[in-house]
Design a protein around this nucleic acid. Sequence first.
DNA 1: AATTTGCAAAATGTATACATCATGTCAAGC
DNA 2: GCTTGACATGATGTATACATTTTGCAAATT
Lengths: 245, 245
Amino acid sequence: MGTEREPKQQSAKALLALRDLVLTGEVEPGERLSEVALAQRLGVSRTPLRSALQRLEQEGLVCLIPSGGYAVRSFSRQEVFDSIELRGVLEGTAARLAAERGASASRLRVIDEVLRQLDLVMQVSAHDMDFERYEVLNGDFHRLLWNLCGSEVLTREIERTASLPFASPNAFVNTQVDVPAFHRTLIVAQTQHKAMLSAIKLREGSRAEAIAREHARLARQNLDFVLEEQPDLRRKVVALALMSG
Amino acid sequence: MGTEREPKQQSAKALLALRDLVLTGEVEPGERLSEVALAQRLGVSRTPLRSALQRLEQEGLVCLIPSGGYAVRSFSRQEVFDSIELRGVLEGTAARLAAERGASASRLRVIDEVLRQLDLVMQVSAHDMDFERYEVLNGDFHRLLWNLCGSEVLTREIERTASLPFASPNAFVNTQVDVPAFHRTLIVAQTQHKAMLSAIKLREGSRAEAIAREHARLARQNLDFVLEEQPDLRRKVVALALMSG
DNA sequence: AATTTGCAAAATGTATACATCATGTCAAGC
DNA sequence: GCTTGACATGATGTATACATTTTGCAAATT
């Protein structure tokens, strides 16, 4: 058969579908990814599928097998920690550069508004909170922060790092719904959000950097909590689908 | 014709050859990279060539054209600066983690020996110095530093960042051959090398990080020098083949 | 003269055929 | 019974054919 689908979108289709397959754990870590089988499953041919595989290899979700082909990657606990720390370092750099170089007033207005919206979301009592909206706003805040310094080189690098599920700013947000202490974490996080922005406005680069790093370590703290105090929760944390051990 | 070459190496061949073509400036920034023409030029088919193009797009050497295909990327002065700064930040993180977590004695021995060799190279008078050997040793030092913390996640990220020609630790080393002040830069660099390692051994993470950052800024300093005081030198700096403006 | 429309050439994205290589099974030999 | 080796199966890497889209150019119209 020749030509009944929409070309040029097959690659994107394969990329999104394959990423979803990996992130939801439908294909297990360590599992070899057979190209023919996957291509058939996703409804594309091998060519766009291989393009997607190579892309995901750069993202870190799959890894090359020495003998050829790809497998779903699995991350050790230490690698997960390091990825979180790295995201903090890069976000810290973005915050520092924004402070040192100065952020445009228009961008600051936008991010201020996001913080205000976050305040509103958190004003309601704990179990009435709209978590989905929190995630959206939290994601917005971080994305805006990444762009605040105006360095495309840096922004791109942060986006790449944060594309790993457990390194994302929202990685452990919905983990905490069931946990009594969760609200405190969010309160601390929002305080840090405000402190970061304040430091940037005051051109206090070093302070902005330090807060951003510490902010990322909240994620590590949550991860520690899940692993050591609520190991039964672990399977429910989608961000940890790729973590071994 | 069917089968007279060595398969499985065509991708690697295409990647290396294409990277060389871009880095040496044989294809100019902004120039569209025609797949058929390139494939013929490099002696491979389009399939491995496209694989190489996608890879170089991740590395940052080429960029996607909205309408399709790839073009040689060009970097603004600011982007070059940011890439250097980013390398410094990441190297600083590697140094800090090495200090905080402790580096293995065997790895420290190896890097110590590299520093000793560097000392030997620099003991001779300025114009007798073996620059090629300096580059090799300098590259060794930095690669060893990247691995000192034992975090593959971080090491991989640094390697990616430093793969940009102007962000490499050796980017401006051979630029300075003609310049009288060059030896001073190298002396400072070697002093920083030793200070970094000392800080790591003493578990002074913050100091190690700060020195590594400042060390990378030597590259920025050299770049400033080339651009503002010796603009005629610029064309001879291969690392700047991709820089516009 | 400038702009727009139509067409042709070329380039990209995709699918698929082919050859080589890896892997696992089964049988033979020790 | 265990190891070794040959073989069949399947998978990957590569090359190439095909269809769609983009792009450059020329002619015609305003």
